[in-house]
Each structure stands twice: as C-alpha cells, then as structure tokens.
Design a protein around this nucleic acid. Structure first.
Lengths: 216, 216
DNA sequence: CGTCGAATTGAAGTAATTCAAACTGTGTGG
DNA sequence: CCACACAGTTTGAATTACTTCAATTCGACG
C-alpha cells in the first residue's frame, strides 16, 4: 500500500545451510526495511528467497488499488518460485526482514533431491492456496479470522499465544475484509472470551477449542 | 452436492498420446456420468486424470455442507496431482465425461521431460489458484461473474460465445456467491447489453470490451 | 401436454462496508 | 519526564451488497 524504500538493502554473505528436509539455498542475505518492496508484479523472476528473520507478504492489486495478500512468509519459508520468468505477484517486507536470495539457476539445474524439494515447495503453496480459496469463498468474517489465527499460531505460535507481526490492514487484505470488520471481529472474540489481546499484536488464546470450533 | 452414481464407469483402452508440449498419459479411459464422483477428499491419491471429453469440478465442502469449487477441468486438462498420497479435494463429473486415468508412478518416475511437464502443470494450477484468490477476496459479484465468463471463454469459447456446461449452482459455488446472486447478475448483464443468454447455458458476448472492463 | 428440476424474480433481512469520529500507544522533542 | 504528534486501531451510525426465503417461470423430457 505504502512502499517506502527508506533503507537501502544491505548485502552480506551467508552460507545458510539448513537441516534435512529443507531446501538448501546458497546465496547472499539481504535486509529489507518495513514496507520495502522485495519484487514487483511484472518484473523478471530470476531468483528466489528464504526468510531468515522477519515476515513478508506477497500480494496483487487491482487497477483501483484493492489489494489481496495471498500469503505471509515466515522464517524458514521459501518463496518467489514462478512458472515463467515474470513475477505474477508483488512482495514486500511486513517488518524489518532478512532474506537469503538465491539465483534461480542454482536450483533448477540441481540434483534430483533439489528438484523434489522444489516440488514439495510448489505443492505446499498450492495446498495453502486451495485452503485459502475455501476460506475466501465460503467462510464468514468470524470463521475467516478464527482460521487465520489458528493457522498462524500453528506456524508461529508459542504455547497458547501468537504475536501478529502484521497490521490489521494486512490481515484484512489477506482475508478479503475491511480493516473495520477485522477490528470488530477481534473485539468480539475478546468479548466472547475466546482470546485476549495485548497491545493489539499479542494474542492469547483463552479458548482454543472454541476458536477451533468456529473455523467450521 | 448431489452425487448420484447412476452409471457404472465403463472401462476401455485408449493410447491417448497428445501433441508436443502436452503431458502424455498412458492409461485406460473411463466414462463418468453426470454428478458421478471421480475421487473424494481423504481417499488415496494413486493416479491422475486427463479430460478427454466433458467437464469435471474439484471442490471442498465444510462440515455444514457449504461447497467451494476450486476449479473446472476441461478437455485437455490434467488434474489430480497431489503432494501427498491423500486427496485434499473431491472431484465429480459436471456432465457426461471421459477421462484417461494414469497411474501415478507412470509419471513420477519418468524422464526429465515428463518431470518438467508435471512442474508446469502444478505451477499453472498454482497460478490459477492465485488468480482466484484475488477474485474471491477483492471482487464483487459483477466482477466475479465477468471474470469467470471471460476466463471460461478463453479456455472454451468459440468466437464471441461460450456454452456453459455447469449449472448456476456450480458457478455460484465457484465464485463464492449464491445461486440467486449469480442468476441476478446474469440477468443484469443481459439488461445492460453485455451478453445474450439462450437457454441459460449459451452465452453470447454482445459487448466483450464492456465485460472485460468490468473485470477491473 | 404434463411433470420436474433448474433458473429467475421479488421482498425482506443481514453481514459486511463505508464514512466519520474517538481512542490508543509509541516515538519525539521540549 | 511530560506533552505533543501521528499512525494505527477501535467504535459508532448509516448504507449497501449480498443472502435468505418464497413464489413464479422456464425448459428439457417422457
């Protein structure tokens, strides 16, 4: 929404090898400031990214500015894989983020194991997209937010609480709602004793079963 | 919604080789009756499918019966590829359909060319899913229907018209709307001189530019 | 020609949006 | 340390797009 390229990305080398079952990316690490663009729709897609720290959002915008965030990428996630050489989505840093940037060729020409990893990556993106289609097409505001909170807690939660790194507007643009509806639904969850909110980003699950049940 | 397994699937052999750039599937052809289940969510995923004739729909349903159709598969489309060995979506025939059924192993262990084809297939499904997320998250009823009609015409249209093989309910469940809203939007398009409808399945584009503009 | 499922249309109701105002919390400068 | 500013969030009231429920029409098929 408001891409401000304040900080110039800082480059520094980092080997960045990870545990078994994860894609090994060899490349430079780059830092991105809050709201800084990582890549834009239509640009050439010659590399991809692994989140080291921070969070990013990939999204598309309609001509009149309506924005739809497809995914948030968290530490450990690899993103930026495209079928063709053009970006079909844009990507920005939600907060201060460090990413490993890998050349595309380094992976596509790799061994069988890497191809399999890449396959798993694409398929998990597809699965998440299918889940989200169900959410956007057939769930109401409460169900959408409950789904989002539980899913996000699965990926990033600690015990019975999560810290949401993104703004209410980001959540709204992810769930196909307005910021006001998201805010009201948060308030309602709190009034119903489902969650407790501290400083509007820290969410504690007071009634995980109730929330889970809300998902449908 | 109403899976009636009237006809038993008829098996017959068919080599089914296709032109360059398309996935070659070797397998048996099977016919499915209207609304017949091809596979159901949770079942083992040991094969995939290529549409020879007819149309299929892949979908998921919530506990209370709300249905979301993710995709329609048309002649030439390959579908049924999964990351794991379990179906995450269900699939039914929209109308009388003939499919080539290929064992999963026949393709996964194949040569590099086949792997690349499979990759393209998965990525095009992902792209379509991303497009649909934007539609469901940020477009209104008119824009959704215009998007659907134009996209469908791109895949299956002849000149300035398309025949829609699916019911209004199918379209509604694809676009995250109710059947009444879909019907009203069709009527409005006709009243606005954008389309002409014959027998409720044959759509002629009276004003393709206007319709295209509506998409945003 | 009659029947039945599908589609359309109408009227009323509702969830979510829009517009507007108030509040909160965080960072900054005095 | 406090006051101020500002962006982000929450809340309220009015509006609207879509849904729901109900009745009617259409069209394919025996």
């Amino acid at each position: 929404m408001q891409a401000q390229r304040v900080n110039r990305a800082q480059d520094f080398e980092l080997p960045a090898e990870r545990g078994v079952g994860e894609l090994k990316l060899i490349g430079a690490a780059r830092s991105f400031a809050r709201d800084q663009e990582i890549f834009g729709e239509g640009e050439p897609a010659d590399c991809f990214y692994k989140v080291v720290s921070g969070v990013t959002r990939s999204f598309r915008v309609l001509a009149d500015g309506r924005r739809q965030i497809g995914q948030f990428h968290l530490p450990g996630d690899v993103f930026g894989v495209e079928a063709d050489n053009r970006r079909r989505v844009s990507c920005e840093a939600v907060n201060e983020a460090t990413l490993i940037v890998a050349r595309r060729a380094n992976l596509m020409t790799g061994d069988k194991g890497e191809a399999a990893q890449l396959w798993r990556l694409a398929m998990s993106e597809l699965e998440r997209a299918q889940d989200h289609i169900l959410t956007l097409g057939r769930r109401n505001a409460c169900e959408r937010l409950a789904t989002f909170l539980m899913d996000f807690a699965d990926r990033r939660g600690v015990g019975d609480s999560v810290e949401l790194p993104m703004s209410r507007q980001d959540i709204a643009d992810h769930l196909g709602l307005t910021i006001e509806t998201v805010s009201r639904t948060f308030s309602q969850f709190q009034a119903d004793g489902l969650i407790e909110i501290h400083g509007c980003r820290q969410v504690w699950f007071a009634d995980p079963e109730g929330l889970d049940h809300l998902r449908q």
